[in-house]
Amino acid sequence: MGLKRDVSLKDFLRYKGKGPMLTFILHRIGGLGMVTFVGLHVLASFVGGRVGPAINLIYENWIFQIVVFFCVLFHVINGLRIVILDLWPKLIEHQREAIWLEWMIFLPVYGMAVYVIVNTALGG
């Protein structure tokens, strides 16, 4: 008799996979964020009365938009990296550089978007 093979969420998060694993986790969080966003949209369309507009207020909120934009943009850029590496396996040798490139594209684009969202929200 030994311990079962189960890997808990804590064990999962404690594993030090470094940069590549961080992108894997953020990719999953991004996917869940988008499902939440789309789910709220669909729910708001079906629910009437005061609840529907109240749900609209959640995803139209500028803080929520900053989170959603992170989810969408990271999911898209990271997904693109994975698709490219899957289609051209020889490029996998340069996966570290691919991740750096991904961050170099993501950070300025996301930073710019956050600036515009915050500026608009605060009446700039």
């Binding site: 996979g17 470094k18 590549p20 694993m21 994975i82 996998i92 040798e93 996966q95």
Partner: peptide, 18 residues
């Protein structure tokens, strides 16, 4: 899912994900 943990962990430095 092309996570690369395997490549990072390999003590023989095999390009596993590749």
């Amino acid at each position: 899912h092309t996570i690369f943990n395997c490549t990072m962990a390999c003590p023989r430095e095999i390009q596993i994900t590749k």
